[in-house]
């Protein structure tokens, strides 16, 4: 766990027509020296449209590795500091590429 000021961030599912599509997964901290050795940072991060998941973390590079339940189609997942609008990471996903193995990279 890197040292530094703790940040309150939220993970948001947006730009989807589905009210039920749910992203479920974990936050991994990326070891920048050896990216193959990522470490689990926060588990059980679950979010759907209008229901973000909030957690506390420290500055660093992270990945949200997740799968999709209860919905299909295109959607976006983004991470931002609570109370701000600037995305720390924001990407488009689509269940046409499968329901599992999704990865969102973001930097706090």
């Amino acid at each position: 766990m890197p040292t530094g000021e703790k940040r309150r961030v939220e993970l948001v599912v947006h730009e989807t027509t589905s009210k039920t599509l749910t992203a479920i997964g974990e936050i991994y901290e990326v070891n920048t020296a050896d990216p193959s050795k990522s470490e689990l940072d926060v588990s059980d991060i679950k979010a759907r449209l209008g229901w973000p998941s909030r957690f506390v973390t420290t500055p660093g590079t992270y990945q949200y590795r997740f799968h999709v339940e209860k919905g299909t189609g295109k959607f976006r997942v983004g991470v931002r500091e609570i109370g701000t609008t600037k995305w720390l990471g924001n990407d488009e996903f689509d269940t046409a590429f499968g329901f599992s193995g999704k990865v969102l990279s973001f930097t706090v």
Partner: peptide
């Protein structure tokens, strides 16, 4: 890539993504 699990199927080439979807299905 140093960690293949860090690559989303959306970010793969079309053939790789299609293979992933087939294996999952």
């Amino acid at each position: 890539p140093p960690d293949p699990t860090a690559v989303s199927p959306e970010h793969m080439c079309a053939e790789g993504a299609a293979l992933y979807v087939r294996l999952e299905a």
